[in-house]
Design a binder for these strands. Sequence first.
DNA 1: GGGTAAAAGTGGGTAAAAGTGGGTTTTTCT
DNA 2: AGAAAAACCCACTTTTACCCACTTTTACCC
Lengths: 154, 154
Amino acid sequence: MFQLTGEYECKMDAKGRIKLPAGLIRQLSGSGSLSFVINRGFEKCLMLYPKQVWDKKTQEVNQLNIYNPKERQFIRYFYRGATEVSTDSAERILVPKSLIEYALLDKELMLLAYHEQIEIWSKDRYAAMLETEPEEFSELAAEVFGNRQSPGTD
Amino acid sequence: MFQLTGEYECKMDAKGRIKLPAGLIRQLSGSGSLSFVINRGFEKCLMLYPKQVWDKKTQEVNQLNIYNPKERQFIRYFYRGATEVSTDSAERILVPKSLIEYALLDKELMLLAYHEQIEIWSKDRYAAMLETEPEEFSELAAEVFGNRQSPGTD
DNA sequence: GGGTAAAAGTGGGTAAAAGTGGGTTTTTCT
DNA sequence: AGAAAAACCCACTTTTACCCACTTTTACCC
């Protein structure tokens, strides 16, 4: 559906609006008013899903059995904070206050787009998150890229 | 897909533009506007991937399970800094400021192309990197290639 | 081997695009 | 109805892409 890529530096203004970078808009194919769902992500970042992606995901989650405690818990966790947002006339989205608090966002942000989603981080916390190479990175890389020729990764 | 080779000396201008050497362009088969993805590499160099190569890699990375903490972190680390860049009318790419800082790039650069990717180094740091003890290198080679024939390093 | 034409590389001005901020109107909620 | 929040609009700043001109290097030919 999407094959998003890119790290973008951007800013949130005093009203909690984020201008989506032009490069990202371009990948989301098309101008017009774009629609997303935003919710709480792991490690206290926010996740932004194009509406179509969100719809696909909810369909899967809705298959789960709410009478099963674990699955019930997952459903709640999945939906936590989910809010629909769309771009205004200047291609900005308005982030709900509760989510701004959750992710400790301030003026300076980083967006990390991959696959079908976009993570939103405060610039500081993003830098801190990437500071250390994950353990077993090379092992995982070997698995992911096949363990023969140079995994390359980056 | 590609079998890039070569060490190229080149320059970055005050605007952060790098002219890709003609020899490299030739290997990338074709003129026209070329598209790449650049991101942070190991040892603080930058990595430049032809767009097709990047897409192939992301396809594999996107198979990972975002609900698994290790795999999630791997995804983020893999993507860190990723920015799409394409050549301008003079076959130059514009390197994002944040990546210039990361790799401590200044005017004089070295490009090292191998396999399907291109490393970008400041000339100084490239020289320093290559200075690392040759003795260690042979041990390294022995380890990497086991006791089979040597590939003829250089 | 040197002159010359072509290709490669470099630099900067400028118009257009992207990003930013804030005032004002409209909507919504109580 | 009044307050608060959201959407709209406009103006301004910053960044990027395009264009053109100039320098340097390479390749070729006599």
